[in-house]
C-alpha cells in the first residue's frame, strides 16, 4: 500500500492489517505516555479544503502520537482562496518535504487525482473526497464493530485477526450524498458483513441496485430484519428544505432512530458525527449503552495512527 484512497478495492489482508495495527495503537493511546517514535523526522500535511475540525484533529493527534511533524494547511485564509490550483498547492507542499498528505476535499476524486499525478511523491491519505469515500471513517467503524461483534461471541482474548463474517449492519439515511456510506459498504462486504440500507428513494443512489446491499424504504422493516448494528447518517441541513423529503419532522417519523424504535432493537448504534439530536437520532438513543459513538472517536485516532504507520514505514 502506497496510498489509502478508498475501501473499494482494499484487499482483505490489508484491511485486517490496518485493523490489527490499530488495536496495537489503541493500546498505546491508553498508556500514560501516548507516544511512539516511529515517524520521528517525518512530515504529515493535513490539507483540508473543507472545514472538518473533528477529522483534522483526529489525524493531527494520530500523527503526533507517532512523533511526526504536522503541518495543517486549511483552504480558508490560504492562497487557495486567491485561486491557487490544487496542483500548485500540492507541488508547494511537496517542495517543503511532505512525506504524507492527508487530503479532505469537497470534490470527489481529488485524492485519487493527487495520487495519480506527478505533483508529489508523498503518500496520500483520503480524509474524505466529496460524496465518494472516507476510508478511515469506515475503518474506525469496522474497528468498533469488530470489537462489539467479537465480544458478543467470545468471552476472552483479542479480536485481532478476526473479521465481521455473519454480522448484519444497517445504514440509515442520506446514502446518496454520503462518502461514509460508500466506504462502509465496500469495507463491510470485504470483511464478510451483510449490509442493509434504509432510506427514502430520493436519498439512494440511482445505481444502488448494482450494489451488494439489501435496500429497505422503511426503517421499521429494516429493524425487523434484526441488524446487529445500526449506523445512523447525519442529515445535512441543506437537504431539509423539502427537496429530498418534505420536512425534518416527517424524516424523523419515518427514518429517525426514535425512542420507540430504540426499544425494539438490541443493535449497536453508530453515528459518524456530528449528530442532529432529535432528527436522525433521539437523545435517548445517542446516550444509550448501545451507542458506540464516543468509542468511534477514540478508534479514529488509533486507525489513523495505524494507516500513517503502515504507509510511511512500509512495515506490513
Amino acid at each position: 500500500m502506497k496510498h489509502l484512497l478508498a475501501t473499494e478495492g482494499l484487499a482483505y489482508d490489508d484491511a485486517l492489517a490496518i485493523l490489527d495495527t490499530a488495536e496495537e495503537m489503541a493500546a498505546v493511546s491508553s498508556r500514560e505516555v501516548k507516544k511512539l517514535p516511529t515517524l520521528r523526522g517525518r512530515t504529515v500535511v493535513n490539507l483540508f479544503y473543507e472545514d472538518s475540525t473533528r477529522t483534522r484533529v483526529s489525524f493531527e493527534a494520530a500523527a503526533k502520537r507517532l512523533s511526526a511533524d504536522v503541518v495543517n494547511f486549511s483552504a480558508k485564509g490560504s492562497s487557495v482562496s486567491k485561486g491557487e490550483s490544487l496542483k500548485d498547492t500540492v507541488q508547494t507542499l511537496d517542495a517543503m518535504g511532505a512525506d504524507a498528505i492527508v487530503i479532505r476535499h469537497s470534490a470527489s476524486g481529488s485524492a485519487a487525482q493527487l495520487a495519480a499525478s506527478d505533483w508529489s511523491e508523498a503518500a496520500v491519505v483520503n480524509a474524505g473526497d466529496g460524496a465518494h469515500e472516507h476510508p478511515t471513517q469506515a475503518l474506525l467503524d469496522a474497528l468498533t464493530l469488530r470489537r462489539g461483534w467479537y465480544s458478543g461471541h467470545s468471552a476472552t482474548g483479542s479480536p485481532r485477526g478476526t473479521d465481521l463474517a455473519g454480522m448484519k449492519v444497517l445504514i440509515v439515511g442520506d446514502i446518496v450524498h454520503s462518502r461514509v456510506a460508500r466506504s462502509n459498504v465496500w469495507l463491510l462486504r470485504t470483511l464478510g458483513a451483510e449490509v442493509h440500507f434504509a432510506a427514502p428513494a430520493t436519498l439512494l443512489p440511482y445505481g444502488v441496485v448494482s450494489w451488494p446491499v439489501i435496500v429497505h424504504y422503511s426503517l421499521d422493516e429494516a429493524l425487523e430484519a434484526a441488524p446487529d448494528a445500526v449506523m445512523m447518517l447525519r442529515v445535512q441541513a441543506e437537504r431539509m428544505g423539502g427537496v429530498f423529503f418534505p420536512t425534518a419532522a416527517e424524516y424523523t417519523r419515518r427514518w429517525g432512530l426514535t425512542d420507540e424504535r430504540l426499544a425494539r432493537t438490541q443493535a449497536m448504534i453508530l453515528h459518524p458525527g456530528p449528530m442532529n439530536r432529535g432528527v436522525e437520532i433521539s437523545a435517548a438513543a445517542a446516550d444509550s449503552p448501545q451507542a458506540k459513538i464516543l468509542d468511534q472517536v477514540a478508534h479514529g485516532v488509533a486507525v489513523r495512527m495505524a494507516v500513517l504507520h503502515l504507509l510511511l514505514t512500509g512495515e506490513h
Partner: peptide, 18 residues
C-alpha cells in the same frame, strides 16, 4: 451533474446526469 448517472456515478459519488 458531472457524469452519466448509473452504476459508475453511484460508486464515484459524482452527481449523476440522467
Amino acid at each position: 451533474a458531472q457524469m452519466n448517472e448509473g452504476k459508475v456515478s453511484a460508486t464515484l459519488g459524482l452527481p449523476g446526469w440522467p
